[in-house]
Design a protein around this nucleic acid. Structure first.
Length: 264
DNA sequence: ATGGTAGGTATCCTA
């Protein structure tokens, strides 16, 4: 059994204590982080090794973005990827034991205005998804046992947001983004591992804005963080859990960890 | 319709 967790940590250095708490409470074999916001040479490597993650891959820069894979299992043949000719550290992949390929993604947020002509960040988001879809399709990822996790910054289902109607024009849930994510999902026949366990009819969120006075009372969440697997391992999905409680941990990230167990 | 908070860093950008 492999337990894999994805978490947009929003500064790994500020929240090292929360990473340690997660490692202790959930004991994931592999922990994929996004928005680490740290240059590779400043990543707290020793600290996460002390938590039991003896295999650590980082792909970051100072201040913005950044992804990392912390693993108790060996990681091989890792690669970084840059899409749209923009060298943001947003995509890191590696191979787990048994030839399982793992992709850790931080999809561009897309800014505020859902208009590709007026908002270059929104165009970047859509182009990033389209380029990745083309690459995955050309690579035949869908034929191999592969896992893709991360902050995809899109809540695709009506039940992935607190109000489908009120978010139709809000970046993260617009029809054009959902269509782009659908094409990405189709590019390799990805299965949404979380929704394979938690029924799509059920409301489910992994992110709550910092701007709410009381995130729990208003509960205006969105499911932005995802775990996908390809067909060869679709029957291995055992459990899926969104650790909502982590949103109430001291000085929390605005995202909570999403965990899937695979019988691998 | 508006503005609300957070992090890293530098006095703003990104989310």
């Amino acid at each position: 059994m492999i337990r894999i967790t994805t978490w947009n940590i929003n500064s790994v250095r500020l929240r090292l204590g929360l990473v340690e708490r997660l490692a202790r409470e959930l004991e994931p074999d592999v922990l994929c982080l996004q928005e680490t916001k740290v240059a590779d040479e400043l990543f707290p490597r020793e600290a996460v090794e002390a938590m039991g993650f003896s295999h650590v891959l980082v792909h970051g820069q100072r201040n913005y973005h950044g992804v990392a894979i912390l693993s108790k299992l060996p990681l091989e043949e890792h690669q970084t990827h840059a899409w749209c000719g923009i060298d943001h550290p947003r995509h890191l992949s590696a191979r787990l034991p048994g030839g399982i390929e793992l992709h850790n993604l931080y999809v561009p947020s897309g800014g505020d205005e859902p208009d590709r002509e007026r908002n270059p960040k929104f165009a970047h988001k859509l182009d990033f998804l389209a380029e990745l879809a083309a690459a995955w399709q050309a690579d035949g990822v869908g034929q191999r046992p592969t896992i893709a996790v991360g902050d995809f910054n899109i809540a695709p289902l009506e039940t992935d947001v607190w109000s489908h109607k009120q978010l139709l024009d809000v970046v993260s849930h617009t029809p054009v983004e959902v269509a782009a994510l659908d094409r990405l999902q189709a590019s390799a026949g990805w299965i949404d591992a979380v929704r394979a366990i938690i029924p799509p009819e059920q409301k489910l969120y992994s992110w709550w804005s910092y701007r709410a006075r009381d995130w729990q009372a208003s509960n205006r969440g969105r499911r932005l963080d995802h775990v996908w697997v390809t067909a060869p391992i679709a029957d291995k999905i055992q459990t899926a859990e969104v650790l909502t409680a982590a949103r109430s941990w001291p000085q929390p990230s605005d995202h909570v960890p999403v965990t899937v167990d695979l019988a691998l």
